[in-house]
Design a protein around this nucleic acid. Structure first.
Lengths: 212, 212
DNA sequence: TTGCCATGTGAACGATGTCTACATTGTGGC
DNA sequence: GCCACAATGTAGACATCGTTCACATGGCAA
C-alpha cells in the first residue's frame, strides 16, 4: 500500500500530465516511422504524422533529424536490418553438412519471404536512393559474398576468386529483381504458390549459371 | 507578304492573348510530366507544377485525369514505351544470322542502357505500383517471351515449352535487378566501364543458367 | 543556487493534392 | 444564324505537408 502511495505522483505525471521532455524521442519516431512504412509504404512516412503519434510537436523532430529524408533513412536502416535477419534466419536453418548451394538459395528465399511478407516495408527499402550500409562485415551483401565463397570451396561452381564479387552481384540482381517484380512490379498479383515457383526457377537459374 | 498579313491575327491570338481552351492539354501535361520525371524522378512530378508550366490552372488537370496517380500513370506508360523501344533498337541491331542468345542479351543491354541513360525516368518506372501493360503483343515482356522461344528453337538452351514463361521471368528478374541496383540501389556509384562488366556477368549468368 | 545546453512548443510560410461553384468556349439541332 | 448543352478552364477554399524561427521548459554541472 505504502508503495502505491509513493508511486502516485509518478502515475499522475505520466498519465494526466505528460512530461515536457519525451525521454528518447528519436527511437520512438523511428519506431513509429517503421510502423507507418509497413502500413502504407514510403509515401506514408510523414514527419508530422509521426510527431502526432508520438505526442509531440512537428518541430521537435528537427532536434533529432536534419529533415524528413534523414528520418526516412533511419526507417530504411531499421528495415534493412530486418531484411538481413530474415536472410540469416533462413540460412541458419540449413543443415550444417548441406552443400553450399543450399545456403545461397536459402538466403535468396529469406530475402524473398521478407519482401512478400512485408511488402510495404520492402517497397520502402527498394525505393531508397541512399543505402550507405557500409557496415561491411554485417551487411547482407557481405554475407552473400561469404556464401559465394563457400560455393567456390566446394567447387559446386567454378568461380574465379577475383570474380567472386561479380558472382555475388549476379545472384543479388536475380533475387532482388524477382522480389521487386513480385511485390510491386508486373508480377505482384501472382498468387502464392505460383510466385514461389517463379522464385525457385529464378534462384536455380542464377546458381546454375555460375558454372562455366 | 499577303500571307503574312493574313496570319497576323493568329499570331496575336497565340502570343498576346492565350486562348481559353488549350487544345490538347492532356498530351501536353503528360509531356511535361515526363520531362519533370526525367529531371527529378517520380517525386518531382507535381500536378501543380505541370499545370503551371502548361500555363493552366491546377484544377484543369482534373478534366483529364482523376487525380495525380493517374497522371503519374500516364507518365509511366510513356516511359515504358521508351524502354520497350530501347530494347527493340538493341535487338534489331543484332545480325539476322546471329544465335538467339545474342538477341536475348541485346534486349538486356537495351534495358540496362535505358535505365542508366535516363536514371530518373527509370526510377519513376521502377517505383510504379501499377503497370497494367496488358498490350500483350507489344509489351516488352511479350517480346522477351518471343526471344526465349528463339532460344528453344535453336536448342542453345533446353527449355521446356511450358516453362518458357518461367525462363523469361528469370531473365527479366536478373536484368531488372542489375538495372535497379546500378541506378538507384547499392551499386549506383559504380563508374561506367565497371557497371557494364557487372551487367555482362549478370546477363551471361542468367542465360547460361537456362541450360539444364 | 545559478546558468547553460539540450530538448520541445507555437505560429508562421510556401507548397501540394483535391474539391466546389462558376466562367468560357465549341458544337450540333432547330 | 441561333441557342442550349457538353466540354473545358478558372478562382478560391481546405487540409496536409516540410521547414523555419523565436521562445519555453527542464536537466545538469559548476
Amino acid at each position: 500500500m505504502s508503495t502505491l502511495w509513493l508511486r502516485y505522483p509518478f502515475v499522475v505525471n505520466t498519465v494526466n500530465t505528460k512530461p515536457y521532455h519525451h525521454g528518447n524521442l528519436r527511437e520512438e519516431m523511428v519506431r513509429i516511422g517503421v510502423q507507418l512504412a509497413a502500413e502504407g509504404g514510403p509515401e506514408a512516412v510523414s514527419l508530422r504524422k509521426i510527431a502526432r503519434r508520438a505526442g509531440v510537436s512537428p518541430s521537435a523532430a528537427y532536434r533529432h533529424f536534419p529533415g524528413q529524408d534523414s528520418l526516412l533513412g533511419a526507417v530504411r536502416h531499421t528495415a534493412a536490418d530486418a531484411l538481413g535477419r530474415s536472410m540469416q534466419d533462413a540460412v541458419s536453418q540449413v543443415a550444417a553438412d548441406a552443400p553450399a548451394a543450399e545456403r545461397v538459395i536459402a538466403a535468396g528465399r529469406g530475402y524473398f519471404e521478407f519482401a512478400l511478407d512485408r511488402r510495404m516495408l520492402f517497397r520502402c527499402l527498394a525505393s531508397g536512393f541512399e543505402l550507405p550500409e557500409q557496415d561491411s562485415q554485417d551487411s547482407p551483401f557481405a554475407r552473400l559474398l561469404e556464401l559465394v565463397g563457400g560455393l567456390e570451396r566446394e567447387a559446386l561452381a567454378v568461380v574465379d576468386a577475383a570474380a567472386r564479387f561479380d558472382a555475388a552481384v549476379a545472384l543479388w540482381s536475380a533475387v532482388h529483381g524477382i522480389s521487386v517484380l513480385c511485390t510491386s512490379g508486373a508480377l505482384r498479383d501472382v498468387p502464392p504458390p505460383r510466385n514461389r515457383e517463379l522464385l525457385e526457377v529464378t534462384l536455380a537459374t542464377a546458381v546454375r549459371g555460375l558454372r562455366f
